[in-house]
């Protein structure tokens, strides 16, 4: 992998993207890599567009902020429009099917994250975990084994099965592309 990969996970407040960022960073650590996770605080974190950022690297991570993301995940159009400004030209934009596809030169992966979470898995609340499945398969930044382990260690016991299902649906969506 690259020396340093920057990932930004975005959506609206309450979609669980900060938890997703933490899990992604933990998966990277399980893979033996370094990881730094940060997020926006305050009014911005309460509603509207919210984001979590993760940097994954094989070597020591000094500058802890994302400056040119390699990957941007957006679950809402507002978040995509707000946060794609510094996505690398060769970067990957993962967006939900409900978002109008932008006229950009990035590689764009558009998949029905929210719809699948709601209808296939049965709970829209696990869209964040499903999105991690998509991201894992589409990028290979972390291993499937590690992301699964990280998810199961973080989520409440009674929701483990549900989240596992969501993650696997995400793997499927990420692989079809």
């Amino acid at each position: 992998m690259h020396e340093r990969v920057e990932i930004r996970l975005s959506g609206s407040g309450g979609q669980g993207l900060i938890l997703a960022g933490i899990i992604l960073a933990e998966a990277a650590i399980l893979d033996g890599k370094n990881a730094v996770q940060s997020q926006s605080y305050g009014p911005e974190a309460r509603g509207g567009a919210s984001r979590a950022e993760v940097i994954i690297s094989n070597i020591n991570i000094d500058y802890p902020k994302v400056s040119n993301p390699d990957v941007l995940l957006a679950l809402t159009e507002e978040a995509m429009l707000k946060y794609k400004y510094d996505l690398q030209q060769k970067g990957l934009l993962i967006i939900d099917s409900g978002i109008e596809k932008p006229e950009d030169s990035y590689k764009i992966l558009q998949v029905p994250i929210l719809e699948t979470a709601k209808n296939q898995v049965g709970k829209i609340i696990v869209a964040n975990i499903l999105a991690l499945g998509v991201l894992t398969m589409a990028t290979g930044i972390v291993s499937k084994e590690s992301i699964e382990k990280a998810v199961l260690e973080r989520v409440p016991k009674r929701t483990k099965e549900l989240n596992k299902k969501a993650l696997y649906e995400g793997f499927k969506l990420g692989k079809t592309q």
Binding site: A35, S38, P64
Partner: peptide, 10 residues
């Protein structure tokens, strides 16, 4: 500072 306090790191 806020950065060191809020970031999560390995």
């Amino acid at each position: 500072d806020e950065v060191v306090a809020h970031m999560r790191e390995k």
